[in-house]
Amino acid sequence: MSPTSLWWWALPVVLLPVLWHRQKRAQTKTVPLATARFLPAARPLQRRVWRWHDVILLLLRCLLLAALIALLADLVLPWRGDAVLVAPGTAPSVVERDAAGFAGAHRIDLPGRDAVAWLHAHEREFAPQARLLVVGDAVMPAVLPRFRHAVVLRTATAPTVPAERHVAVFSARDDAWRRLFAAAEGPWHVVVDAAPGPRTELIVWDRPEVPPMNLRAPLWWVADAAPWPGLAQAPSADGLRWMDTPRGRVWHADGWPPQEPDRARALFAAWQQLHVGMQPYTAPAQVLAPDAGAPAGAASGALCTWLGMALVALFALERMVTHVRRR
């Protein structure tokens, strides 16, 4: 049971308006009539009468409390049935081939490759008997996931599309740097721009002067450390020094641009591992049996917007009815 589900234990609070309305009495003033002396003495009796507008106000207050509890408990309705989860970039022919046996299942295009994370966030939206199929290049999780539904993984590594990495070079040895980037290996396509732009990921600064203050990029390769006095005390590993500045992260190593192929490959490998990040592996094809003891994932909050709007509307109606009743 998730922590938000504990709010359902507060449902008896909805009875408070009922008790309050039952005990509420109108204040009346008793005025004796002159002819009352001829009537036999009797104790006055009070009779409680419920009016229609009181009942409407009672219902509004009960609904207001119920909607508040549902919002705090993050209500989730299991409205989804069998589904085919498609990773980005999966060809329609692959989906049609791998979705055999899931006829009539609803297709869901995942926002990213991490199908496990999406399922953990949305699993409570699926009916208890729903079957789930994941196709395409989905990410392999660090540990074997557990779900309350049967999940079939029919995954395959998608063809690698070279990613563009935009670079701006400021150097008198512009040709040497361009030859270095032209020889880049791997799933990259390095584009050397004439000037920095919004897509620039790397600036190569191979000049003795200080760069302009308005020049910024996520990563800098600095061949001359003279304009960067902080690099002398910066940490280093394998001859590479780095430090963080308001302009971006700065790297420096002696002998740049590298001339040997091994040094060039090591530099590109460091760029991939330390800055861009390693690409996750594709999850292996397998069948995950349902596990009734699997913890319920966090709710996706799909109904929070609707419940919030309902709360505002109910509160406004309750205030209006209360105001009309007091007039």
Rank of each mutant, 00 (worst) to 15 (best):
V191Y: 08
V192W: 02
D193L: 11
D193G: 09
G197I: 07
G197L: 01
P198V: 10
T200W: 09
T200R: 04
L202I: 05
L202T: 08
I203C: 08
V204K: 02
W205N: 10
R207W: 04
P208G: 03
P208E: 06
P208H: 09
E209Y: 03
E209I: 08
V210P: 13
P211D: 12
P211L: 12
P211M: 13
P212F: 13
M213P: 12
L215N: 09
L215K: 12
R216Q: 15
R216H: 14
A217H: 11
A217C: 12
P218I: 02
L219W: 09
L219Y: 06
L219E: 10
W220C: 11
V222R: 04
V222D: 04
A223W: 04
A225N: 11
A225M: 09
A226G: 10
P227T: 07
W228Q: 15
G230M: 13
L231H: 13
A234E: 06
A234D: 04
A234K: 06
P235F: 05
P235C: 02
S236F: 01
A237G: 07
A237D: 12
D238T: 00
D238H: 08
D238M: 12
D238P: 01
G239K: 02
G239S: 07
G239R: 03
L240R: 12
R241D: 00
R241C: 00
W242D: 09
W242V: 04
W242G: 00
W242P: 00
M243R: 07
D244C: 02
T245I: 07
R247E: 08
G248Y: 09
G248T: 13
R249W: 05
V250Y: 07
V250P: 04
W251T: 03
W251M: 03
H252W: 04
H252Q: 05
A253F: 07
D254P: 01
D254C: 03
P257K: 13
P257I: 05
Q259D: 14
Q259W: 05
E260M: 08
E260R: 14
P261Y: 09
P261M: 12
P261G: 06
D262L: 11
D262W: 07
R263Q: 14
R263L: 12
R263I: 01
A264S: 15
F268G: 10
A269T: 14
Q273W: 13
Q273C: 07
L274C: 02
L274A: 14
H275G: 06
V276F: 06
V276G: 01
G277I: 06
G277T: 02
G277C: 01
G277N: 05
G277A: 00
Q279Y: 00
